[in-house]
Simulated scan of single mutants.
Amino acid sequence: MTMVTLYDAKAHLSILDNSQDALITSLIAAAEAACGAYLALAEDAERPATLDTAVKMTVANMFEGREGAFIPAEALSLLNEHREWVFG
Rank of each mutant, 00 (worst) to 15 (best):
A37Y: 11
A37H: 14
A37I: 13
A42W: 05
Q20E: 13
P48C: 02
D21T: 02
V55Q: 01
A30N: 14
M57W: 03
A29M: 12
T25W: 13
L23I: 15
V55K: 03
L23E: 13
A34K: 10
E46P: 11
D21G: 00
G36C: 01
L39D: 02
A49W: 01
T53P: 02
T53M: 06
S26Y: 06
L51Q: 09
A42H: 13
K56C: 12
I28E: 00
E46A: 15
C35N: 05
Y38I: 06
L27R: 05
A29H: 10
V55P: 03
L41K: 00
E32S: 03
K56M: 15
E32I: 00
E32R: 01
D44G: 11
K56E: 10
L39H: 00
M57R: 06
A45D: 09
A22L: 08
A45C: 01
M57L: 11
L23N: 13
A29L: 13
A37S: 15
M57K: 05
A33G: 14
C35W: 01
Y38M: 08
G36S: 07
L41C: 05
E46D: 14
A33Y: 13
K56N: 10
Q20K: 10
A34P: 07
M57T: 00
R47V: 14
A54I: 11
L51E: 06
D44F: 06
A45Q: 06
E43M: 09
A49H: 06
A42V: 04
R47E: 14
D44S: 10
A42C: 05
E46I: 06
E46S: 12
R47T: 12
A29T: 15
I28P: 00
D21Y: 01
D44Y: 08
A22T: 14
T25I: 12
R47S: 09
G36V: 05
E43S: 10
Q20R: 13
E43Y: 07
D52H: 09
A30Y: 10
G36D: 03
A33H: 15
A40C: 09
E46Q: 13
A33T: 15
D44C: 06
G36H: 02
Y38A: 09
A34S: 11
A42M: 10
A29W: 07
C35V: 00
L39S: 03
L41G: 05
A30V: 13
A31F: 04
L23V: 15
A54F: 08
T50S: 15
A54N: 05
P48I: 02
Q20W: 05
A30G: 14
A31S: 07
L51R: 04
L51F: 12
K56Y: 04
A45E: 03
A42Y: 08
C35M: 04
E46V: 06
D52N: 12
Y38L: 04
A31R: 02
